[in-house]
Amino acid sequence: MREWHEKYADDGFVIIGVHTPEFRHERDVKNVENSLLRLNIDFAVAIDNDWKTWRSYNNRYWPAMYFIDKAGQIRYLKIGEGQYAYSESVIQALLAEPYTAN
């Protein structure tokens, strides 16, 4: 993820981590901040302590990745770890896709 952020940020790729806590101690923003430092994560992270965004996505799993195209459409949902090469090819294809703002 961090690698993708570094690699494609200049091409118009934005990663947003939505931190939805499972346990009580994960609700502490300080703890999340520390984990970002520890994992060297510098992309944007939303604190979803009240599960608002989780619910609006109707999400059920950690981790879950929603790949959203230039027009704002969800094009691919990846649940769980792995298949990183395929996910990266999805990012590349979506970046290469032509887009005209309407």
């Binding site: 790729f13 934005v14 990663i15 981590g17 984990s35 999400n59 950690w62 959203i68 990012i91 979506l94």
Partner: peptide
């Protein structure tokens, strides 16, 4: 704070995660 509406034209990856 970011809004998807402001990010049209970008490819966005929204990842739900927890550090725990």
């Amino acid at each position: 704070p970011l809004k998807l509406a402001d990010l049209r034209g970008n490819v966005v990856l929204v990842e739900f995660w927890t550090y725990g």
